[in-house]
């Protein structure tokens, strides 16, 4: 295991990025073509020459694009990101300077992803006033443990909220609804978490897409690492976190080995979150 880790660190940066990307295809293939994607991922992993083979990456990119086109409206955002990334890997594998291609595209992908996510949170109408998170805490189910811990509400109350929403769904009448049982402290926490998310998601596109200020741009990975560590410890979206980690690793300046190491560490730890 240790010798494998040492070998991984001794490989050229682009090769590590491509191998992590191949691993992603094996772990989380896109739904329609999971056999094809997994087989391509294994082929890409078995030998360094195959990892850099642009024909195999072209096949992966075409398979990913096919999966996108055939399930356009059903797929999640990270599955689109995986397809964009397969195209990037193909472009990198065809290039004389794969590190540059991977780094540039990863940086822009992170910047654009967070830019558009931030715009939705500001203009979507549900995040700026904390209402999305408040609803998720009250009736989302997913965060019942956290909501109960911070919100001065019992798990039974939260389960009752969820049951009321479910009951409403069995016999819906336009405009008819039910008052959920909440708490002022939970509402405050929802606003705090919302503003934390808005803040961190605003910083990331700025430092990724703009080269000025130079110091912030150089250490741009830090806010991304903070985002991944704080968000995905709570929100169980492992695939998105893995994709962002690969992008983070690929675009990190070569001399910041400790940051690259943190991205690798998070990549390994995320499935255990």
């Amino acid at each position: 295991m240790i010798s494998q880790a040492k070998r991984l660190f001794s490989l050229p940066s682009h090769l590590v990025t491509l191998k992590l990307s191949a691993l992603l295809l094996i772990l989380y293939p896109m739904n329609d073509l999971y056999v094809v994607m997994s087989v391509l991922g294994i082929i890409l992993l078995v030998h360094d020459d195959l990892t850099k083979n642009h024909w195999v990456w072209l096949a992966a990119a075409l398979a990913a694009c096919y999966a996108l086109i055939s399930n356009w409206f059903s797929l999640n955002n990270h599955e689109f990101l995986i397809a964009y990334w397969c195209i990037t890997c193909w472009l990198a594998a065809s290039s004389n300077d794969p590190d540059k291609v991977l780094s540039w595209n990863a940086r822009i992908l992170v910047g654009l992803t967070f830019l558009f996510a931030e715009l939705w949170k500001i203009f979507g109408g549900y995040f700026l006033d904390g209402s999305y998170l408040y609803y998720v805490f009250l009736a989302g189910g997913r965060f019942a443990g956290l909501a109960s811990f911070i919100g001065d509400l019992t798990r039974e109350t939260l389960a009752e909220n969820r049951a009321a929403v479910d009951a409403l769904k069995t016999l819906p009448v336009e405009g008819v609804g039910v008052a959920l049982r909440g708490s002022p402290i939970l509402k405050t926490w929802a606003i705090v978490f919302s503003y934390w998310t808005i803040l961190i998601e605003a910083i990331i596109p700025i430092v990724y897409l703009s080269r000025r200020p130079a110091l912030l741009h150089r250490y741009r990975s830090i806010p991304l690492l903070i985002f991944i560590a704080t968000t995905y410890a709570i929100v169980p979206l492992h695939r998105f976190a893995l994709v962002l980690n690969i992008f983070g690793f690929a675009q990190c300046p070569q001399d910041l080995a400790w940051i690259r190491g943190l991205h690798l560490l998070l990549f390994l730890l995320i499935p255990f979150f």
Partner: peptide
């Protein structure tokens, strides 16, 4: 009538 979460505009978590 598409959900704002879909279509890859990164609108997930922006609305309920």
């Amino acid at each position: 009538e598409m959900s704002t979460w879909k279509g890859s505009g990164f609108g997930m978590f922006g609305t309920i």
